Each structure stands twice: as C-alpha cells, then as structure tokens.
Deep mutational scan, measured.
Amino acid sequence: KRLSEREFDPDIHCGVIDLDTKKPCTRSLTCKTHSLTQRRAVQGRRKRFDVLLAEHKNKTR
C-alpha cells in the first residue's frame, strides 16, 4: 500500500500533518522527514512519544 492509503495509527506512525495533503504522516515513528519536536507534538498517542519510540526500536531489533 502507498503511504497515503495506510490507516493512520498515532501509536505506530509519525503523525505529523502534511501541509499538502492535510493528512497525518503514516511513516514509522522513526520518520526522517519530520523532526523529533514535530513528532513529539502529535496528539492522540496512548503513551509519550519517547516511550513508544523506545518500544518500536526494541521490536525491530
């Protein structure tokens, strides 16, 4: 699936709103397109961004 077609989940996706499409970014939490500050500011996550990021990195090892 293309990035734009993915169902957005704030707990596994970057989530920064794309200015062109007005939709949240569906790249992983480790997205290189958006800064850490931008990704931390995303609302609606179950846990703090840093906790989710650490969990994500542990899963992908």
Rank of each mutant, 00 (worst) to 15 (best):
N58V: 09
D18Q: 15
L36T: 07
R2M: 15
V16F: 02
L3D: 15
T37G: 11
T37V: 08
L36N: 05
E7Y: 10
L19G: 13
F49D: 04
H34M: 00
D20G: 11
D20V: 09
H34E: 00
C31L: 00
C31E: 00
R48A: 15
L52T: 03
D9K: 07
F8D: 01
Q38E: 13
S4P: 08
D11P: 01
K32E: 12
Q43F: 05
H56D: 10
S35D: 09
I17A: 08
K57A: 13
R46T: 12
G44E: 04
T60N: 12
H13Y: 06
R27M: 11
D11G: 04
R61S: 15
I12A: 13
V42M: 01
L36C: 05
H56C: 08
K23Q: 11
R48Y: 05
P24W: 05
I12M: 14
T37A: 14
L29P: 02
R61V: 14
H34S: 00
L29T: 02
N58I: 03
T33P: 02
A54E: 14
S28T: 09
G15A: 08
Q38Y: 02
K23T: 10
V51Q: 15
S35I: 05
L36Q: 05
F8N: 02
R61I: 12
R2A: 14
F8S: 03
F49Q: 03
R6N: 08
R27N: 13
V42T: 02
T33Q: 12
A41S: 11
Q43C: 11
K23E: 07
C25V: 00
C31V: 00
D18T: 13
R39Y: 00
E5G: 09
R2W: 04
R39A: 02
T30C: 10
A54L: 09
T30G: 09
G44Y: 03
D9I: 09
G44P: 04
S35P: 10
P24D: 01
R45N: 03
T33F: 06
D50K: 01
H56A: 11
C14Q: 00
K57N: 10
R46S: 14
L36D: 12
R46M: 11
R48S: 15
S28D: 09
V51G: 05
L52V: 04
K32R: 09
I17E: 12
